[in-house]
């Protein structure tokens, strides 16, 4: 049984991870590299001269971008392991798990792991002012856990008490607030910051839909293989 979890998560995570890694290189990385020109001081926003919005960006870097793809695969394999664990609990409660229903699980994963923390701690371009990273990580984990519990209650709860608790859990981290910096010192133009957040969330949604669908497909397929083997 353990192998069903590991095999389906590895296939789903690695496959989704490669696609997402490439999507990030195409859509997110240029914005990040653009921001780094301001972070390093090579470009200065509101300096003496107006700065072109279309600078020459560094090209493909095999080591840097290769590592990015590998770490994207690892990250989404981690997410896939959590996903198939959640799917097995859902299946025990009567949920159907396959490639199509996996899309819905993927959207839920996006909301829990990307949109919920990003609602207050927006995806950051390099160089933005931010509070202590350890404090933000605590807030990130707390928000993600609260959102996971909330979505589970929305999906599998049967009464208004469960749904009300879910709404509270979704809102609470943002009402309490995330650790924020003392002052704003980011040198990056707001246009780049906004584009980066939009791109990160957009690619994130595609990423999670793929991951959910793949995880559902491989989970079902590995289950059929196991049933045939018996």
């Amino acid at each position: 049984m353990t192998s069903r979890f590991l095999v389906s998560a590895l296939f789903a995570g690695a496959l989704a991870g490669v696609i997402i890694g490439l999507l990030q290189l195409v859509f997110v990385q240029p914005v990040l590299l653009h921001a780094e020109l301001y972070e390093s001081g090579e470009l200065v926003h509101f300096g003496a001269e107006a700065v072109s919005a279309h600078p020459v960006l560094p090209g493909f870097d095999l080591m840097r971008d290769g590592l990015s793809v590998i770490f994207t695969m690892l990250t989404y394999t981690g997410y896939a392991l959590i996903m198939v664990a959640a799917m097995s609990f859902g299946e025990d409660r009567g949920a159907r798990i396959d490639g199509r229903w996996g899309i819905l699980w993927g959207v839920a994963g996006f909301v829990a792991f990307h949109l919920a923390p990003g609602f207050t701690l927006a995806p950051e371009v390099p160089g933005v002012a931010a509070a202590d990273v350890a404090l933000r990580q605590v807030w990130w984990f707390a928000t993600v856990i609260a959102a996971c519990v909330a979505l589970w209650l929305l999906a599998f709860g049967h009464n208004w008490a469960a749904w009300g608790a879910a709404a509270l859990l979704l809102a609470a981290p943002h009402l309490i607030g995330a650790p924020e910096p003392e002052s704003f010192t980011g040198p990056v133009p707001t246009e780049i910051g906004a584009l980066f957040a939009a791109r990160a969330l957009g690619v994130g949604l595609v990423a999670w839909v793929l991951l959910g669908s793949f995880a559902g497909y491989f989970w079902q397929r590995e289950g059929e293989h196991a049933a045939q083997a018996v």
Partner: peptide
């Protein structure tokens, strides 16, 4: 880069 792009 992945941490930034993934919203960590």
């Amino acid at each position: 880069d992945v941490r930034h792009a993934t919203g960590f």
